[in-house]
Design a protein around this nucleic acid. Structure first.
Lengths: 357, 357
DNA sequence: CAAGGGGATGTAACCGATTGAACACACTGA
DNA sequence: TCAGTGTGTTCAATCGGTTACATCCCCTTG
């Protein structure tokens, strides 16, 4: 007779509900009901069952529970990499809210690879995750659109939800939830801040045509220039990826390449700003005395270097994604939320003496 | 007759293996065997089944699969927070290796709270994760030891594995795998590096009695002093947590508090070093010309600020944890691996002119 | 005192897969 | 012709729970 803890073949085996029932001298149905807590039960029976649970250190088998009745108890997040601060913060928000709702959090990383993304989504589908949250900056082309539409429909058919975080909506025919934040408005605000401090030649670091995040930040930058009737010089927009090394590289190259023809720098994100800052300092340029600098994202490290930047509600993004997904009545709804961003003024921008210009 | 995609009550329902079998005109057993790929089958049957799978966009139900036969296909990682770089890197390593082994990755965060940790481990136990990996710096006391021993035995009883990452071993009677890295040796090496450059008064930033990580780094620091026969001054050890703000705070306080009585700073990790660096620079002290600085962890940002530090194989830590857990024949084994650390010399330490001392 | 009713528990079907054992069929060799 | 041997497929038990329905017991109530 196999007891809890050992099975016929000798391998360890966790206690089952049957073991608990036997020990408490009741049927498995009774145990199940008492543990779910939704049924009336005699206090004495209840006591016996709970004691048996404690003695056997029983925990329910989530797979069996999921199979039999209940809902999926998990939420999946799929990111490029766990290491990047933006993703990490969103993931933290997802994790928080999932935990609050008693959900388990599944993670997948893609490294930006479409095949791995597909494989990961399939895996999440097998797991019956209640929601699959895809995060981040991507190139939106036809292939992307089609891929997402496929995911969305497949997940909806399984009673699950596709959620896009920090990406543009797919259209009314695709059942996905979209949680964005306002890149364009943020970039507009920070550019206006620089312009109103008298800067007219503002270097934009980190353009990357086709990628949604830099694209909309550039758009905000240009719109602000136009609003201030400052001529737009494409030569002030520098291409590059969104990491610190690139920031250093772009700034360094620009400084090496000739006389400085700008008085302020708007970095596409705080990582770029940090790299650029280092390059500027190495050339003996002080911030904000000699040159003004602004970033985007409001990472914790931005406060440390007194960087004026745009606050992005990273964690709120993740939390909202989970909240919407779990509380949308009919899975397969199309919803769209745009979270606000706002400028955080610190000490990296100085008013340019307009008279001396 | 409910078709795939809709069930009796109208709610969407994913295609099951039964749907596939029906469509292909075979039994469910055949479908299962063909999809598992381990059984011989007639090419024509095989074709019909695969076509049905494609047409229905069928994916297996992981919960049912797990219940019926197979092993758990998941690995769990439990960290304080996803945001901290150290945890994030380890998590990335876990995620990589798990993906390579075809495993899903479950995540839980505890925020350093023992109750949430317990709840998370229970959840992972319900999920039948093959391994539960706990990461990071903690206070080792009796309560901790007992808690871990409990986890280890409960998991072992369920055929799972407790893995401790970056924590000390629990003892021969507790069935857990431990993957550490050599904090003491790393701190010893970097302190020796400072000493051999002629520094004798080395400020240690970030002591925190009781916490394993700072404790072993302090130990390495002291051992190196002893080896060089340099008197140990407890007044040079400053208490504080391991983040950037604290680094700034500690350094700032020390500088404000009186004449500078040290020529080098050894920060307990790179975050502290970054904060300290900022405080030093604000006081007009240049690194390494006026003062030498060293850190610990070798985060990506350390390279950006040319910080001499100790390389910690964060991701390798995560990968090793997964590898050991999945390939230990008998769950419940006690194993202990210590990964090496090595000093990375950059440009934040300058030889002190011994003659002028 | 019999009928009725509600609270507490048991019985058994089911969720969607895997898998050992049985079976059908074609082919070989004596 | 028939036992023997593979191949390819199906049957049915099983994993560990949930839950609709049946059952039983005891206490009201007319």
């Amino acid at each position: 007779m196999p007891r809890a803890g050992t099975s016929a073949n000798g391998r360890p085996r966790p206690a089952t509900i049957r073991d608990v029932a036997e020990r408490a001298g009741v049927s498995v149905a009774t145990v199940s009901r008492i543990l779910s807590g939704t049924y009336p039960s005699a206090p004495t029976t209840r006591g016996r069952v709970l004691r048996a649970v404690r003695e056997l250190d029983y925990v329910a088998n989530a797979r069996a529970r999921g199979l039999a009745g209940g809902q999926a108890k998990s939420v999946a997040i799929v990111v490029n990499s766990v290491i990047s601060p933006h993703y990490a913060h969103v993931a933290q928000g997802v994790q928080d809210e999932a935990a609050r709702e008693g959900r388990l959090c599944l993670v997948g990383t893609t490294g930006g690879d479409a095949d791995r993304e597909l494989a990961t989504v399939q895996l999440m589908r097998e797991e019956h995750a209640e929601a699959v949250i895809l995060v981040g900056n991507i190139v939106v082309d036809d292939a992307y659109h089609e891929r997402m539409a496929g995911y969305a429909r497949a997940l909806a058919a399984a009673g699950s939800q596709l959620v896009l975080c920090g990406r543009p909506p797919l259209g009314p025919d695709v059942p996905a939830i979209v949680v964005e934040y306002d890149n364009t408005a943020g970039a507009h605000a920070v550019t206006s801040h620089l312009l109103s401090a008298g800067h007219e030649r503002i270097l934009f670091l980190g353009r990357r045509a086709g990628y949604t995040t830099p694209d909309s930040r550039v758009a905000g930058y240009r719109a602000a220039l136009a609003a201030y009737r400052v001529p737009h010089d494409p030569g002030l927009e520098v291409d590059g990826r969104m990491d610190r090394q690139e920031g250093y590289r772009m700034m360094r190259a620009r400084l090496d390449e000739g006389p400085r023809d700008f008085t302020a720098v708007f970095a596409c994100n705080d990582l770029i700003a940090a790299g650029a800052r280092q390059a500027l300092r190495e050339q003996g340029l002080r911030i904000p005395d000699d040159i003004s600098l602004a970033g985007f994202d409001d990472l914790p490290s931005a406060a440390d270097i007194d960087l004026t930047t745009v606050h992005v509600p990273h964690e709120e993004l993740g939390r909202t994604a989970v909240r919407l997904a779990l509380h949308s009545e009919t899975p397969g709804t199309v919803q769209h939320v745009m979270l606000g961003t706002h400028i955080v003024v610190r000490d990296s921008v100085r008013r340019r003496d307009v008279l001396s210009a």
